[in-house]
């Protein structure tokens, strides 16, 4: 089976599972959970920086998805839809956990699109720690754009900010990572 065929199968399989879950089939929904839980949890964990909060967010994401599943349009990507829910849930939980207004510094910079290549390879653990130490806004934009591959527009929509703000946050994230990792992030 070629990779393209495998992808087609996965999509067909997912559409069938969504269809079954919409009729109340929790087994089908569990299969969807198993397929997407890792990426959803990874997103929640990086956004909240708290394993317990990330677990709560992941559960909330899938429960909200279950409720809203009949409104999901199968033409769009289920993973993107789940990630949108996960971002909303994580932002809400984070605000509730520490209701601090974003600092004016969050609006700085006008950086545009950039690559995320490191001049010198760095250990995964070290990068994750550096990402975890970023301010919330910069970290959110970085996670969605550089790790999950969403465009500036998509990331901005998910985060509920202007596209320019998202680009500025990415610029800031790049600068802070460069300072913390002592390598060029180009």
């Amino acid at each position: 089976m070629t990779q393209a065929q495998a992808e087609d199968t996965r999509v067909d399989w997912e559409a069938a599972l969504v269809q079954r879950a919409c009729t109340g089939d929790t087994r089908a929904f569990e299969r969807l959970y198993r397929e997407h839980a890792g990426r959803v949890y990874g997103l929640c964990l990086r956004m909240t920086r708290d394993a317990h909060l990330a677990e709560d967010c992941t559960q909330e994401t899938f429960i909200n998805a279950w409720r809203a599943l009949p409104r999901f349009e199968t033409r769009s990507s289920l993973s993107t839809w789940l990630h949108r829910i996960a971002v909303n849930v994580s932002l809400a939980k984070r605000r509730k956990a520490s209701p601090v207004a974003p600092s004016p510094d969050d609006e700085e910079g006008t950086g545009g699109a950039c690559g995320w290549t490191l001049e010198t390879p760095v250990e995964v653990q070290e990068i994750e720690a550096a990402i975890g130490a970023l301010p919330d806004g910069a970290r959110d934009a970085l996670i969605l754009h550089a790790l999950y591959g969403y465009s500036h527009v998509e990331a901005a929509q998910m985060l509920g900010v202007a596209e320019g703000t998202c680009k500025a946050q990415l610029h800031r994230a790049r600068r802070l990572l460069r300072e913390r990792l002592h390598v060029e992030v180009g």
Partner: peptide, 30 residues
């Protein structure tokens, strides 16, 4: 960040090489 996985000593040259997926420490489905 707490718990993005076990200590990973793998070196990467790009942020896109990081895996977006992190397995939850326990099964959340039940």
């Amino acid at each position: 960040m707490s718990g993005t996985g076990s200590a990973d000593e793998r070196r990467v040259g790009s942020l896109r090489e990081l895996s977006p997926a992190v397995e939850p420490p326990r099964d959340l489905w039940p």
